[in-house]
Amino acid sequence: MLVGNETLYTILFYALSLAAVLFALLMVCTKKILRSAAYLMAVLSVTAGYYMLLGQEFMAGVQILVYVGGIVVLFIFAVMLTRSVELDEDKPTLGRRLLALLVSVLLFAFSVVMFSWSELPVLLPGLPGSSSGSAVAEIGRRLLDTGPTGYVIPFEVVSLLLLAALIGSIAVAKYDSSSGGGAR
C-alpha cells in the first residue's frame, strides 16, 4: 500500500476524483475531437493513479502503457485519418443532449441508490504481508495457472483475440486501389 496514512489517503482520493471527473466532463462536452482525446488521456492517467492508491502498481503501469500509450494514440491517429476539412465541430442537438443527460443521470442515481442500500466495507483493509513485487508475481502465476482457478485459457483466448483484431483491422482498413479505395 502506497499510503500508510488515512488522511493522506483521503486527500489523494478526493483530489484524484476531482481531476478525473473534471477531465471526463470536459472530454464529453468539448467540441474539438483532439482535445477530447487529450482529456481522455488525462482521465486514464488519473485512473492509473487510482490503481496506485489501491495498491495495484502493476495495473497502474499496464494502464499507462497500454491505455494511454496505445489506445489514445490510436484514437489520435484515427482522428487524423478521418478528418474532413471542416468537420471539427461536434455539436449535438439540444434534445439529444437532454435525453442523454436524463438517461445517464437516471443510471447514476439508480446505481448510487443501490450502493447505499448494500452493506459495503468502510475501511480500506491493509494488505497482509505486501510488498510491491508480490502482486506482479502473483498475477503472472495466476495467468498461467492451469488449475480450476487459473486464467490460462482466457489468457490464450485473449491473445488469439488480439491476433484476430490485428488481422481484421488490416483487412478492413486496407487501401485497395483497384476498387476505389475500399477493402476487397
Binding site: L99, V103, L107, V113
Partner: peptide, 15 residues
Amino acid sequence: VWLAGGAAGIGILVV
C-alpha cells in the same frame, strides 16, 4: 438512448 434508458427504467421499476 432507448437501451440505456430502458435498462435504467427497468432497474428502477424492479427496485
